[in-house]
Amino acid sequence: MSVPVLEIRNLHVDFKTRHGVLHALNGISFSIARGEVLGVVGESGAGKSLTGSAIIGLLEPPGHIAGGEIYLNGARIDGLDFESMRHIRGKKIGTIFQDPLTSLDPLFRVGEQLIETIRTHLPLDEKQARARAISLLADVGIPAPEKRIDAYPHEFSGGMRQRVVIALALAAEPDLVIADEPTTALDVSVQAQIIEVLKKLCRERGTAVMLITHDMGVIAETADRVAVMYAGRVAEIGPVRSVVQHPQHPYAQGLMGSIPPLDQHPSQLQQIEGSMPRLSAIPKGCAFHPRCPLVIDACHQTQPELRASGESFAACIRAGEAA
């Protein structure tokens, strides 16, 4: 088996606060193969974006990696010094953030931003970098790129700006793209286009993608595998079809059950009772047990490890049992 592009083993991220240490990520493990799209879903605060920040080494203090390992193409990258990590960011790992309206520097032409990024990572001169920038803009579907390259970000629409952001993330042909809710801030009609562009370009280049989103529709259409996160842990991970259609973990079951079906009109939308615990009050044992319909005594005691269940892996001692 070839080495995965990204492998995370037992990653812990802590926040030191005045009221003690908060464990924001509690032993996350997953890997992404070359060309694969891994969807990461979960409620706000489950640790999705935090995982992304930890991978690129840009956790905001006081957040820090408290344990575990991160490998990129088999080489360990957690704990690298800032300068070595800088050469990985942008060059090996491209990142796309949620809000295209604020991701670009408003005071520089998009061309200047593209060329600066390209020349930071690739040994090209100004002219070659400009040519590359134009072809990148063409790749992401910006019409008349040789003209638009000299426009400022405010002269683009939201969808077009997110295309520019994608071009920036792909500027140096990274092996991995971390897309942190790339479509959340966009119109529904534009969302599909953006996902399509991202999917196409990454397939062509064999780029692995970690796609963080709330949108199960996007996941179902785009991802190869999906990881469901809950309270800083991976609750379930497996092939997208199996997780969406036959979720094994009760939380994943609840999540999938809460997607309203298109062909019926239920009088009431389904929801998971309660809300995710705050980081300062994660219950002992399985973090999901206070909300779990299948809870038994053992759930209060031990945090279950991921284990094979159906086609997926689920962190639940009653995995696979229907609610």
Partner: peptide, 29 residues
């Protein structure tokens, strides 16, 4: 703390460029 500076970091730009090209220009407006 702005998003475009965060994105500039994620693009692996040099600290010098982030501080004195991007951040300083926004600051001076």
């Amino acid at each position: 703390r702005a998003d475009h500076i965060k994105f500039a970091r994620a693009r692996g730009l040099t600290t010098h460029s982030i501080h004195f090209r991007h951040a300083l220009k926004s600051t001076l407006v």
